[in-house]
């Protein structure tokens, strides 16, 4: 294992870090890399900001059971229309 990684690897590990998919050592890799690389340190900052926005309670999601209900309703209506067109 290397302590210092290249930009490509650092970017990938930074992405993984946004999902808690990066190990402690990998997070350390990103930190070390960012010390010497302005570009990647900007990328990390932007990436973290995006993660924060996506977790904001103002970014809402329609509940899954409601989506399911609407999907079924639409399918029923579509089937009905098809049946009406046939005869």
């Amino acid at each position: 294992m290397k302590l210092f990684v290249d930009c490509k690897k650092a970017g990938h590990l930074c992405d993984k870090g946004q999902y808690e998919d990066a190990s402690f050592f990998e997070k350390l890799n990103v930190r070390f890399h960012n010390l010497i690389c302005k570009h990647c340190s900007d990328y990390s900052e932007r990436n973290a900001k995006l993660t924060k926005l996506l977790k904001d309670p103002k970014c809402r999601q329609m509940p899954e059971e409601c989506k399911k209900r609407i999907r079924e309703e639409l399918e029923r209506e579509l089937a009905k229309e098809k049946a009406e067109q046939k005869p």
Partner: peptide, 18 residues
Amino acid sequence: DPQKWVDKYSDYLYNYTI
């Protein structure tokens, strides 16, 4: 393409409406 409406737009419309 109504079959994809829920997957593609429901969250967007939900945020817009709420």
